[in-house]
Structures are given as C-alpha cells and as structure tokens.
Nucleic acid binder design. Sequence first.
DNA 1: GCTCTTAATTGACCATGGTCAATTCGCAGA
DNA 2: TCTGCGAATTGACCATGGTCAATTAAGAGC
Lengths: 238, 238
Amino acid sequence: MSDLQIRDIAILHGASEEFFTKLESVGNERKLDKGKIVFIHEEQAENFYILMAGWVKLFRETADGAQSIIDILPAGHTFGETPIFEDGLYPYSAEIVEPSVVISAPLSLLKEELQSNNELSMNMLKHLIRYKRGQDRELEHMTVQNAPQRIGCFLMRLADSDSKGPVTIHLPYDKTLLAARLGMQPETFSRALAKLKEQTGIRVKGAVVELDNLEQLINYSCQVCSSEFPCKDVVSLK
Amino acid sequence: MSDLQIRDIAILHGASEEFFTKLESVGNERKLDKGKIVFIHEEQAENFYILMAGWVKLFRETADGAQSIIDILPAGHTFGETPIFEDGLYPYSAEIVEPSVVISAPLSLLKEELQSNNELSMNMLKHLIRYKRGQDRELEHMTVQNAPQRIGCFLMRLADSDSKGPVTIHLPYDKTLLAARLGMQPETFSRALAKLKEQTGIRVKGAVVELDNLEQLINYSCQVCSSEFPCKDVVSLK
DNA sequence: GCTCTTAATTGACCATGGTCAATTCGCAGA
DNA sequence: TCTGCGAATTGACCATGGTCAATTAAGAGC
C-alpha cells in the first residue's frame, strides 16, 4: 500500500527513462471498485495494465459458466501485456476484486520499448522464468498437497517468511475467491480451514489469522513438497 | 524424427548466424539411452541442452522420494537454460525417457547471445508466454477434467488436430510415465483409459490407439474446458 | 437500530481417484 | 522357445473432496 511508483514495478526494470516519461504522460491512472471488469477474454487488446494498488483476478469461463482462475495478482504486477506476443487478443478476462488503482497504457508503447531495449526484454524474461517456476510449484501442489495443506502453504507465504514469533495474517480477499484460487469449493475451504485449525493451532477470526510461529504451518504443509522448507519459488501472492 | 537441424529449433529463432556457427563448433551432440540422467536439481549449471530427437523428463523429487513431473519434452525443445536468469542452479532434474539425441553447449554462449541480440530475447519471450498459456490450461485441466477426460484431451492433442478420418496414435512413452504426466496413478490411468474406451469407442492395443474420428474425443474431453474445441494453447507434447 | 443480500458454515450423501495386494501381460535375453 | 522381470491390469477398500440443501453470520444501505 505504501505509495507504489511506476519505477518500482519490477517487471519494468530496465525500461528507458523516455519510456517512463511517456508512460506518465500517456498512461491513464484510475481508481477501480470491486467487481469492475477491466477487459474480457478474446477482446481485441489495445492496452496493457499496471496494478498500483489492490487486487485483480485473471480468469476464463468454462462452457458451463463456471470460472477458472488463472491468477490473482497483488499490486506491483502488470497484466494484459501478453497480446504483444500473441494474436492481439486478451487470453483471459480481468476483474478487480478489491478496491484498486490501475494504470492503463497502449500496448504499442510497451511493444516499441521492448523492440528497442534488450535490457527490458531480458528483465521480462527473468520475471517470466521466475513465474514459470512458481507455476510449476503450483501444479505440483495441486497433486501432492491436500486441501488443508494448500491453505497452510498459502498462509505461510502470505506471512513474512522470516519472522520468528507470533504472526497475524489478513486474508487479502474473500474466502470464496481464495477457495477458487486454491482449486477447491468454498465448502471444502471452510472445512479444510477448520481442520488446519485443529492440526496446527492457528486461530481464525473472520479474515484475520493468528499463529504463534510459522514452524507449525511449515511442518504441516511443506512436508510433502519437493522444495525445501520455506517454499522460495512460488507464484507471487502479496 | 525427420532430421531436425539446429536452425529449426523454434525457441532459438532470431539468434545470429555467428551463434549457430559457434554452437555447431562448441556444442556436443550425443546419443543418450533411456534412463540417462542429464543433470540433477540444484546442481551448478554449466550447460544448456537442445533435444534433437527423443523425449526428456523434467522432474523434482518430493521429500518421500516420489517424483513430481514438471514436463516431458519432445524433440525441438531446449532445457536447462533458465539458470541464466536465476541463481545458476538447475531448478529441476532431467532424465532421458526414450532413446534421444541431445546437444549440450555452455550457458555462457546463450547468455552472451541473449545480451547482445534483442531479436532472440523477444523470440524467447514469445515462446515463454505461449508456454505460460499452456501451463494455465494444464492447471485448469487438473481441476475441471476428470481422469478419462484428461487422457482423451492428451490423445486428441497428440493426433493431427485437423485430420477428419480415422486416426492412429502411438503413445510416446510408458503408460506409467504418462499417468504421472497427467497427474494420476498408474492404476487410475489404466481404469480411466478403459472408461474412455467404452465412452468414445477408441481402440487400444498396447501403445497404439485408434479412433474413427477426433470428434468423439473432442466432445468427450473438451466440454468442461474454457477453450473452444480444439484446445489451441497447450503445453507442447509432440 | 433494522432489513436485505451475499458470504460462510454445516450436514448428509456420493463420486472420484488413491492405496495395497494379487495377477497377468509383454518383451528382452538366454 | 523358455525364463524372468518390470509394466500393466484388476479387485477390494477407503479417504478426500464435490454436490446439494439448509442454516447462520456478516456487512451495506436505509
């Protein structure tokens, strides 16, 4: 929340000063409320977006109308930039899920910068590769972790991973959405959270979770996983 | 199988002629048998690899010794190149699963080319983004498709997607491995394949699958998915 | 404060797929 | 052709999580 600046956006590191200047003049910054659709799947893509505050859900709809969550991004991420490299259509829909601040700017601006600035391309490569590693882990989690473990793993990663003592975690968005993000039904989420409570001694009050130390969660959730204890490489979630 | 050349490797499109020349002189081409480990997870990375023929499994080991499959790549793919952008360690192990031909070359060669050639960086970005789309789909499949549907989806994508008439598909590697690749146990795979047989009328004889037309499979497998019928964007599997 | 709407929880039941054990199949090597 | 070993299949059973319905909790607007 601490005022994020355009030049802090990690995926844009390496962009030229001219790029940031143009972005400031031509970019359009708006506050958007929960529920606002930024763009929809298969739409012709004109702009890319930078999330300066809040949370945005990227998703697709299946034939029967259900949603399939691609990711839920925190502030500091860009989205809707991939049509530069593809067919010019958005590969997913984007919906604001918490009050947010979003900058939009023409894809052409980013495309031209990428074409003329290898440093930016390399930096984007770096970020994509890190993201891929996170996704690999996510896919692994879906098969090796059960529902309570997935929740524990998520909570663990939301917390400051190096704090020794008691921790307080605020769930960043609705439990229903969190359930979908973790690939389970809301009912399963509710029950799994209850089980996690009795297994690890965490305390849950609404959207606030308290625990005495992270060790408990780590032991419970990370045991089955291929990564060492504090799961370093994982899709960003805060 | 039809003699692949270095210059055909899609992810290297855009590399300079000097790069390919150096690659030819300094690269080391070897035939490798099934079971051969190319490198292991967390090992210091010296080389990247190009798979000219065969299949390679990328995987990690979980605490209890089980394997978590990251991907199983067909000829034409590179692997072990990401340490360039990370900590210099391989993020997974690589094992040959069918008789293969592999070229190895120093990571520094690729790194220098990337640093001086934006066209190559852009092309790699394009490929990674396409791959990400595939992984998004893969993750979706894990939650919306059941076991027989996942197998059907896989078979469908192995076949020539535009052939109208009868199709013959050869499973590219062991069923046990295929099961792991699709995120299920061998027993489940066996039963799911049997169910797919009775539901769609495909005929299975060992590693050979025959069907009268793809429509049957498409109807059965793609119904629940967020993509239109022939699932375009998906992790490459042939 | 009250009302309405949506989120969250809980219960009962069931389908899917995992586990363990026992065969059977298929192929490489003698 | 026979043998032996790993792959594949099949059966029986069970754990996990999905589904549907009912109930409770929480938050926004008046």
